[in-house]
Amino acid sequence: MSTSSEQWLTPAQYRQRAIATALALVLFAGVLILLYVFWWRPWSIQRDRLQSLQERRARVEAVLNSRPAIETALRGAELAANRDPLLFPEPTRDQAIAGMMQRIQERVTSIGDEGKHCRIDSQNPVTANQTADPQRIAVNLRLHCGNSEWLQFAQAVESARPAMFIDELNITAPSEQSNGMSSAQQGALDIGLTVYGFLRNAEPKVDVRP
């Protein structure tokens, strides 16, 4: 059998081939690390940044595109509020409370007939530090009214514009009088209540910043 074509490696040659193989693997791993650090990682960071910028631009464009619709809706809401105002239009809290008290007085004098009317015994505004809502204004009232006049007054208040609401209602029935004398206020209800409403908010502004 001929062995001229066979190459037999010596131990030294085996060691050299193993070292060369290890060096090749180390070199390959080093190339991969360098590619990751100097190419793949920067490219990934730039790609994520570009995607973030594109998403931000899309949000900004969506807000800008919706601005005309928002402004139209706000103008419509303002016109509707001016036509049928639910909030008190006065610019300050004190003026709004004065306006509320004047409206209450007007409603008291507008109800009743044949000498039967409500009477305001006391009318005291609620101060700002007594309410948790800065937009809320209120007046504490004490009235003397007949039953029919009281119902008319309550309906007139809660159907008013600007809107007013009744709260903390306390009604005491009249005491019986034994002397048989009658008067305009005999049989009137003693009524304690709070009438409240809300100030108009400041004009809203559209913020188109992202």
Rank of each mutant, 00 (worst) to 15 (best):
T3I: 08
T3Q: 12
T3F: 13
E6C: 10
W8E: 07
W8L: 13
W8F: 14
L9I: 05
T10G: 03
A12R: 13
A12C: 03
A12N: 10
R15W: 05
R17P: 01
A20H: 05
A22R: 12
A22V: 08
L25R: 11
V26I: 11
F28M: 12
A29P: 02
A29F: 09
G30P: 00
G30V: 09
L34A: 13
L35C: 04
V37K: 09
V37R: 14
F38W: 11
W40H: 09
W40T: 11
R41L: 14
P42W: 02
I45H: 09
I45N: 10
D48W: 08
D48T: 13
S52W: 07
L53T: 02
L53N: 05
L53E: 11
E55G: 04
E55R: 11
R56N: 14
A58S: 11
V60K: 13
V60Y: 08
A62W: 02
L64D: 08
L64I: 07
L64P: 00
L64H: 03
N65H: 11
R67W: 03
A69W: 08
I70F: 04
I70R: 04
T72K: 08
T72E: 10
A73M: 12
L74Y: 00
L74H: 00
R75I: 03
G76F: 05
G76P: 00
E78G: 03
A80W: 00
A81I: 01
N82P: 00
R83Q: 14
F88E: 03
E90K: 02
P91L: 07
P91W: 01
P91K: 05
Q95G: 14
Q95S: 12
G99A: 15
Q102I: 08
R103E: 14
I104T: 06
Q105N: 15
E106W: 06
T109Y: 04
S110A: 15
G112M: 03
D113S: 15
E114R: 13
G115M: 03
G115V: 01
H117N: 10
C118Y: 02
C118P: 02
C118D: 05
C118E: 02
R119L: 15
I120F: 06
Q123L: 15
P125R: 12
A132F: 09
P134R: 10
P134T: 10
P134H: 10
Q135K: 14
R136Q: 15
R136T: 02
I137P: 07
A138S: 11
L141Q: 04
L143R: 03
L143A: 07
H144S: 12
H144I: 02
C145L: 04
W150P: 00
Q152D: 15
F153V: 01
A160L: 00
A163R: 13
M164Y: 05
M164Q: 06
F165K: 05
I171N: 02
I171Y: 04
S175T: 12
Q177S: 12
M181T: 08
A184H: 04
Q185H: 07
Q185W: 10
G187S: 06
D190L: 10
D190I: 04
D190G: 00
I191A: 03
L193W: 00
T194N: 04
Y196K: 04
G197P: 04
L199Q: 05
R200M: 08
N201T: 14
E203H: 11
P204C: 07
P204A: 09
P204Y: 07
V208T: 15
V208C: 11
V208Y: 05
R209A: 12
P210F: 14
